[in-house]
Lab assay of single mutants.
Amino acid sequence: AVTGSQTALLLRAFEKDRFPGIAAREELARETGLPESRIQIWFQNRR
Rank of each mutant, 00 (worst) to 15 (best):
A1T: 14
A1E: 15
A1I: 14
V2Y: 10
V2H: 04
V2M: 15
V2F: 13
V2G: 04
T3Q: 07
T3I: 06
T3R: 05
T3C: 08
G4V: 13
G4A: 15
G4N: 14
G4E: 15
G4P: 15
G4M: 13
S5L: 15
S5C: 15
S5D: 15
S5F: 13
Q6Y: 05
Q6G: 03
Q6I: 09
Q6V: 13
T7H: 14
T7I: 13
T7M: 15
T7Q: 13
T7G: 10
T7C: 14
A8K: 13
A8L: 10
A8P: 02
A8Q: 13
A8R: 11
L9C: 04
L9S: 07
L9I: 15
L9Y: 10
L9N: 03
L9R: 07
L10E: 02
L10C: 03
L10T: 00
L10V: 02
L11H: 06
L11E: 15
L11G: 03
L11W: 06
L11Y: 05
L11Q: 07
L11F: 05
R12L: 12
R12F: 10
R12W: 08
R12V: 09
R12E: 08
R12I: 12
R12D: 08
A13P: 01
A13S: 07
A13T: 07
A13N: 04
A13Y: 13
A13H: 11
A13C: 11
A13E: 04
F14Y: 12
F14I: 01
F14C: 03
E15F: 12
E15S: 07
E15T: 08
K16H: 10
K16R: 09
D17L: 04
D17V: 04
R18C: 14
R18I: 03
R18T: 06
F19H: 07
F19E: 07
F19K: 04
P20I: 04
P20N: 01
P20K: 03
G21L: 04
G21Y: 02
G21R: 04
G21T: 09
I22Q: 10
I22V: 13
I22E: 11
I22Y: 12
I22K: 13
I22P: 11
A23T: 10
A23N: 11
A23R: 08
A23F: 10
A23K: 14
A23Q: 09
A24L: 06
A24K: 10
A24H: 05
A24I: 11
A24M: 12
R25C: 12
R25S: 03
R25L: 15
R25Y: 12
R25M: 15
E26Y: 10
E26A: 13
E26R: 13
E26K: 14
E26H: 11
E26F: 09
E26N: 13
E27F: 07
E27Q: 11
E27C: 00
E27V: 13
E27S: 06
L28P: 00
L28F: 02
L28G: 00
L28D: 00
A29C: 07
A29G: 06
A29R: 02
A29N: 02
R30Y: 06
R30D: 04
R30Q: 10
R30V: 08
R30I: 07
E31P: 00
E31R: 10
E31M: 14
E31L: 15
T32Q: 01
T32R: 01
T32D: 03
G33N: 06
G33T: 03
G33F: 02
G33W: 01
L34I: 09
L34K: 00
L34G: 00
L34Y: 03
L34F: 04
L34D: 00
P35Q: 07
P35L: 07
P35E: 11
P35M: 06
P35R: 05
E36W: 04
E36P: 11
E36M: 13
S37T: 12
R38K: 09
R38E: 14
R38G: 06
R38M: 15
R38P: 02
R38A: 14
R38V: 15
R38Q: 13
I39P: 15
I39Q: 03
I39C: 02
Q40W: 08
Q40C: 15
Q40P: 01
Q40K: 12
I41L: 13
I41F: 10
W42Y: 01
F43E: 02
F43P: 00
F43C: 00
Q44V: 12
Q44M: 08
Q44A: 10
Q44H: 12
Q44C: 02
Q44E: 15
N45F: 07
N45G: 06
N45W: 06
N45H: 09
R46Q: 15
R47E: 06
R47T: 05
R47G: 04
R47H: 05
